[in-house]
Nucleic acid binder design. Structure first.
Lengths: 332, 332
DNA sequence: TTGTATGCGTTATCAC
DNA sequence: GTGATAACGCATACAA
């Protein structure tokens, strides 16, 4: 651990520590000769500036903290990836903590993050766990949350599930469906409710009525998709379009349709939500909405950086739209 | 920012900074009275120790760096999760960097990590990208790599693909198959080669010959699984068992079998590798080997910690075995 | 263009 | 039991 310090470099180069510091930061003019010499010594000695000392001195660590609940969720890890990408382009680094580490006590986790001189924090809530936000405590550094509002005072990035649901309906209608059904996710989930709400709104806007018997209450799991399809078809034999509020259920529905001999898409068109990796590979590849993970990550970093650098006081919710991915399950 | 310092607490409590420090660390006896008072003031003022100053002083940051190539890969994020879990239990934290941040220049990334006073580093290579290791440069802190040996001098955790392939064959044979086929992954991939090697070794050990025409060269993608199945069945109409070197190909194979009217598992048993989330949901759920991500994470942290704390000089490769997950595709 | 001196917030080594 | 005080490695105001 006996590391080489700036003093060592200075001595070896026959200059003062300050000079070495300035060579590194470029914050004041240095003669070409000394710069070259110092640089050479730095390489020779393998000197690495000590980050802790720097941070201690400058109060700007150039790193942002990311607190993620469960990043086993594919969505979460994709968002993190995008966060890192953008952060990196702006010469920021990521200090990462999973909520698990703090038993999902957000306040505690943030307190921990505050000890590091982080320039800002992004809280990334999971979508599958409806973990409560809880109080976030007193936070005096820039903070942005994703997937769930952290507090009134902090900006939040959300996927536009409402719009996605709306577009799903639009897509089915424009594909010629006249009697469309809906398999919802769990009522407790915000995303689930929003998707359904958007879907129904579109039907209403296009002047259709939607009988209750065309709706089935699923739970986002595969089996409920299959069960939903069977039940809906039983009650509405002429149903010709179906929106499942996520891809897991859509997969179940497509498979169940096959079992019943209901040909997709000829007799029934099906669309899901999430664009999971298996959706395009399914025996009948099915249409879906691609959740805007990458853009959500980008948006979060951008607003965070503008809070840090621009010193602005951003706030409010930003919705990011999903992308429609049409596949065989809804083709004419 | 981290406004309140130890000095402030000390002044408010009418004691010296040193006392506050010792209250916090418990490294020397403090009278019950002062301890209580100091603690109260700390809470009242909301004091948080400054991590940078601590690290600067003590040379032990209690955090380990994790350098991951592409953690969009589900395997990678699962390993990270497990790493964090174990690290956390030992009161270590994670400083996380993705290789992308450094254009996958491992040396550069490590140099960056070295600037933080990290107590150790885990390099987590992706499985899908066959990114070269490159030189890792001079590393004077404990280092463990996962998925690929970083250098002779550093310990490495690998999944036991050979054993997995072996067990896949065993499983097919014990399920009664007599003419088993193999769809390999790309030759360039170490994991792919190992899986095939283990598979063939088992056949050999059990005294069977394996004609070349029962092997098809896939590429780990869905389509090659389907193509492989069709081709193999064409040449060997009596093939009754098939090992696909990953689940993606197994999915393709299962679907293709359905298309051809070859009933799985009655006429043909199929097994994959990876235990992807869709494997158990596939119209015909298929057997597979569950890659030992969690255990790999645990192993990496454990050996790293024993290097850090025990100051031991671990080395060599540790193979972690996969778990067999039997499903309908191979049932009797 | 370069050097000197001071302090960032802790911990640890002395003293008392 | 407790209090001064010197580092830790660096950045920068102030000198030269």
């Amino acid at each position: 651990m006996g590391r080489i310090r700036m003093t060592d470099v200075a001595r070896a180069a026959g200059v003062s520590p300050a000079t070495v510091s300035y060579v590194l930061s470029g914050k004041r003019p240095i003669s070409e000769a000394t710069r070259k010499r110092v640089r050479r010594i730095i390489d020779e000695l393998g000197y690495r500036p000590n980050h802790d000392a720097r941070a201690l001195k400058s109060t700007r660590s150039k790193t942002i903290g990311v607190l993620a609940s469960d990043f086993t969720e594919i969505s979460v890890s994709e968002i993190i990836l995008s966060i890192e990408q953008i952060a990196c382009q702006n010469e920021y680094h990521i200090f990462f903590v999973s909520g698990m580490e703090f038993d999902y006590d957000v306040k505690e986790a943030l307190a921990f993050l505050m000890r590091r001189r982080l320039d800002g924090v992004i809280i990334l809530f999971g979508v599958t766990s409806d973990q409560p936000v809880g109080t976030i405590g007193e936070i005096d550094i820039p903070l942005v949350s994703i997937n769930r509002p952290a507090s009134e005072a902090h900006p939040c990035i959300l996927p536009d599930n409402y719009n996605g649901g709306y577009r799903a309906a639009e897509h089915l209608l424009s594909a010629g469906c006249t009697r469309v059904g809906l398999v919802t996710g769990p009522k407790e989930r915000f995303s689930s409710r929003e998707r359904a709400r958007g879907f129904l709104a579109c039907l209403k806007d296009s002047g259709r009525r939607f009988p209750r018997k065309l709706q089935y209450a699923g739970d986002f799991e595969y089996d409920s998709g299959a069960a939903g399809l069977e039940r809906l078809l039983e009650v509405n034999p002429d149903m010709d379009g179906l929106f499942c509020a996520n891809d897991m259920m859509a997969a179940g529905a497509v498979t169940a349709a096959g079992r019943l001999g209901v040909v997709v898409p000829e007799r029934l068109k099906i669309i899901g939500f999430d664009n999971r990796d298996f959706s395009g590979l399914w025996p009948t590849p099915f249409s879906t909405l691609d959740a805007p993970f990458e853009e959500m990550g980008r948006a979060s970093v951008n607003t965070l950086l503008s809070m840090i650098d621009g010193n602005t006081r951003e706030t409010g919710i930003t919705y990011i739209k999903a992308t429609l991915v049409p596949r065989r399950s809804t083709s004419h």
